[in-house]
Amino acid sequence: MRDLSNPTRRDFLGVTAALGSVAAGISLPTAAFAQDAFPSKTLNVVTHAGPGGGTDITTRMMMLRARRVFDQDMVVVSKRGGSGAAALMYANGQPRDGHTFLTITQSHIFQIIQKKVPLTIDQIAGIARATDDPTVIAVPTNSPISSLQDVIRASAEASGGLKWGTTFAGGADHVGIHNFCKKAEGIPYTIVPFQGGGDIVTSLVGGNVDLAILNYAEGESQFAAGDLKPVVALSAERISGIPDVPTAAEQGIAAYASTVRGFAALSGVPEDRMKVLEEGLIAAMGHSAYQSYLQSGGMTSSSVVGMDEWNAHIERIFVESETALKELGLI
Results as ranks from 00 to 15, higher is better:
R2G: 02
D11I: 02
D11V: 01
A17Y: 06
S21E: 14
S21G: 12
S27N: 08
P29W: 00
F33D: 08
A37M: 06
F38N: 03
P39R: 07
S40F: 05
K41G: 15
N44P: 04
V46R: 11
G50L: 11
G53L: 12
G53D: 15
G54P: 08
D56R: 00
I57L: 04
R60L: 12
L64Q: 09
L64D: 05
V69Y: 10
V69K: 10
D73M: 07
M74F: 06
V77A: 03
S78F: 01
R80W: 01
A85H: 04
L88G: 03
M89Q: 15
M89G: 13
Y90C: 00
A91D: 10
R96H: 09
D97V: 05
D97Y: 06
T100K: 04
F101V: 02
L102R: 00
T105Y: 14
S107V: 04
H108A: 09
I109K: 10
F110D: 14
F110N: 12
I112F: 11
I112Q: 12
K115M: 05
K116W: 09
K116F: 09
L119W: 03
T120Y: 06
I121P: 08
A128L: 09
A130L: 11
T131C: 08
D132S: 12
V136P: 03
V139I: 10
P140T: 06
T141D: 03
P144W: 06
D150G: 15
A156Y: 11
G160C: 12
K163H: 13
K163S: 12
T166G: 03
F168S: 09
D173I: 14
G176E: 05
G176I: 02
I177D: 01
H178Y: 14
K183F: 07
E185N: 13
G186M: 03
I187L: 06
P188A: 09
I191N: 10
P193M: 02
F194R: 15
Q195S: 14
G197H: 12
G198V: 07
G198T: 11
D199R: 10
V209F: 00
A217W: 08
F223H: 04
F223A: 07
A224V: 08
A233I: 04
A233N: 07
E237I: 11
S240T: 05
S240D: 02
P246N: 11
A248N: 01
A249K: 12
A254V: 06
A254G: 03
T259R: 04
F263K: 13
A264I: 09
S267I: 00
S267K: 00
V269M: 00
P270G: 09
M274Y: 00
E278R: 03
E278N: 09
E279K: 04
I282K: 05
A283H: 04
A289E: 15
E315T: 10
F318C: 13
E320H: 04
S321R: 12
S321C: 10
L325W: 00
L328I: 08
